[in-house]
């Protein structure tokens, strides 16, 4: 069953095409990676899915219902949570508060929300740091906080925007492990934009490649990585001679 479906989605900024007629389908319970060189339109595509930007053409359906045109908070409540490429924690609030406010999306009892935040905090190794202000965290911790907060809203699908960037290899492995466990144990569907290829190859069931806003390939990781078009887009056409 498809959980997310994009049909001919396009977005232009002042004539510049950022996302060009992209269609894709993400099956429930899978891990789906979107890759592509810098400026390929990946983050714009995320913003369109999450409702932070409005699309020019096309349609986006989530869980069987159209979501384009909805506000970001409405889309979150439908079960689609996102992280930001440039992390945006609530700086003056504690780590615990950050995550508890995420829980409050579906839990109106504040005490219960704080209690339930523990699960997400532990999943991302932040439990011991829960009393710290978010602004005092290191970048890798902020990235984890971003994921913990999004997860706390109890999504069906998590959109992760370069959450591995800036992490050291052992930290990448740890996050990969956490995400794999979430995907396996809770059936959480994950869509990730990622440059760290070891994370993509070890997690993703399918990979979608964008270049200049348009789709150039899609398939299982191994197959996509061998695609000459994909290699060309990363290395530049000259490299192939």
């Amino acid at each position: 069953m498809s959980l997310l479906r994009l049909d001919g989605v396009s977005k232009r900024f002042r004539g510049l095409v950022a996302v060009d007629n992209v269609s894709l389908t993400v099956e429930a319970g899978t891990v789906f990676a979107i890759i592509g060189p810098n400026g390929a339109g990946k983050t714009t595509l995320f913003s369109l899915i999450a409702g932070a930007l409005s699309l020019d053409t096309g349609a986006i359906a989530f869980d069987g219902a159209r979501i384009n045109g909805l506000r970001p908070d409405q889309i979150c409540m439908r079960g689609l949570a996102r992280t930001f490429q440039i992390v945006r924690p609530f700086p003056a609030l504690s780590v615990h508060e950050n995550v508890a406010i995420g829980v409050m999306a579906r839990e109106s009892n504040v005490a219960l929300a704080f209690a339930r935040a523990e699960e997400s905090l532990r999943a991302f190794d932040l439990w011991d740091k829960r009393e710290q202000r978010a602004s005092a965290l290191t970048l890798p911790d902020r990235k984890r906080l971003e994921m913990a907060r999004a997860l706390a809203t109890r999504p069906k699908m998590l959109l992760l925007d370069e959450t591995m960037a800036g992490l050291r290899p052992p930290e990448v492995d740890r996050v990969v492990e956490t995400l794999r466990a979430l995907n396996r144990d809770t059936g959480l569907t994950i869509v990730m934009i990622e440059h760290v290829m070891r994370a993509v190859t070890s997690l993703a069931d399918r990979v979608h490649v964008l270049n200049h806003g348009a789709t150039i390939a899609e398939g299982p990781p191994k197959q996509v990585m061998r695609d000459p078009k994909v290699i060309a887009s990363y290395l530049g056409a000259e490299a192939l001679g």
């Binding site: 999450a50 932070a52 506000r71 970001p72 908070d73 409405q74 979150c76 409540m77 949570a81 996102r82 930001f84 945006r88 924690p89 609530f90 700086p91 003056a92 609030l93 508060e97 508890a100 406010i101 995420g102 409050m104 999306a105 579906r106 109106s108 009892n109 504040v110 929300a113 907060r149 999004a150 706390a152 809203t153």
Partner: peptide, 26 residues
């Protein structure tokens, strides 16, 4: 300050865009 609304206000104050992304009708 202790209510759900109070917490959502703080989130909005800190970062409206991030608040929207976690389901708060800013």
């Amino acid at each position: 300050r202790r209510s759900r609304l109070g917490h959502q206000w703080l989130a909005t104050r800190e970062d409206a865009e991030a608040a929207r992304a976690i389901g708060i009708n800013v």
